[in-house]
Amino acid sequence: MTALAHLDLRLDPTVLDTVPTVLNEVLAATRAWPGIEGLEVINDDANPSHVVVELWTTTTDHDAYAAWRTTPDAASHLGDALNAQPVKTVIVERIALVF
């Protein structure tokens, strides 16, 4: 079942001009990872330093990617652009609605 991984990033407002370059570098590897179905970087209208959403085929695919991101091979400069720890929420279950 498709898993929505919401990664809540709080970027350092003083480095916002460098964020597109850093995100393009980091997310190129994300887009190439097996099981990624989609990736969208979105900004909070009220706070441009608040961003990201990923869509994965399964939670297992996302977990493998997240584990890889903790290795030296997956090191990036994204942490340099953050002013808080990322908060990840993975959602699989959906509420069936009838309209």
Rank of each mutant, 00 (worst) to 15 (best):
T57Q: 15
Q85T: 14
H62I: 05
I42T: 09
T58D: 11
T58H: 06
R69K: 11
P72M: 04
N24P: 06
D63Y: 06
Q85K: 15
V41G: 07
T59K: 14
D63N: 14
T60A: 15
V53P: 05
R69A: 10
G35E: 00
A67W: 02
A46K: 10
A64Q: 11
L82M: 03
E54C: 13
V53E: 09
A28E: 15
T71W: 01
V41K: 04
D80V: 08
I36M: 06
V52W: 04
W68D: 02
A29C: 12
V41R: 07
T70M: 01
G35P: 02
I36E: 02
V52N: 11
A84V: 10
A74Q: 01
I42P: 00
A67T: 08
A75V: 09
E25Q: 15
A66P: 00
W68F: 02
S76C: 06
V51L: 12
G35C: 02
R69Q: 06
Y65N: 04
T70Q: 10
W33K: 07
A64V: 03
D80M: 08
A84N: 11
N83D: 15
D63G: 08
D73C: 07
A74M: 05
G79C: 08
P48Q: 08
H62P: 06
S76L: 08
G79Y: 04
I42Y: 09
G35S: 02
G38I: 00
I42L: 12
A28L: 10
D73Y: 10
Y65V: 04
W33D: 05
A29N: 13
D73V: 10
N24Y: 09
Y65C: 00
H77F: 10
D80G: 13
G35V: 00
L27P: 03
G79L: 08
L82T: 02
P34R: 05
W56I: 08
T57R: 15
E40F: 04
S49I: 01
D63S: 12
T59S: 11
A46N: 07
D61F: 06
V53L: 13
A67N: 09
V26H: 14
A75L: 09
W56M: 11
E54Y: 13
A84W: 05
G38E: 01
H77W: 03
D73W: 06
A67C: 01
A84I: 05
S76T: 15
T30A: 10
P48L: 05
G35H: 01
D63R: 14
A74N: 05
A74R: 04
I36S: 01
D61H: 13
D61V: 06
D44R: 09
A67D: 04
N47V: 04
V26C: 08
G35M: 00
V41C: 09
T60F: 04
V52Y: 01
T58M: 07
W33E: 09
A32F: 06
P86I: 02
L82K: 06
W56A: 08
P34D: 03
P72D: 09
E54N: 14
W33H: 12
G35D: 00
A74V: 06
P86V: 02
L27D: 14
G38V: 00
T57V: 11
S49A: 13
H50F: 08
T71N: 01
E25Y: 10
L78P: 07
A46I: 02
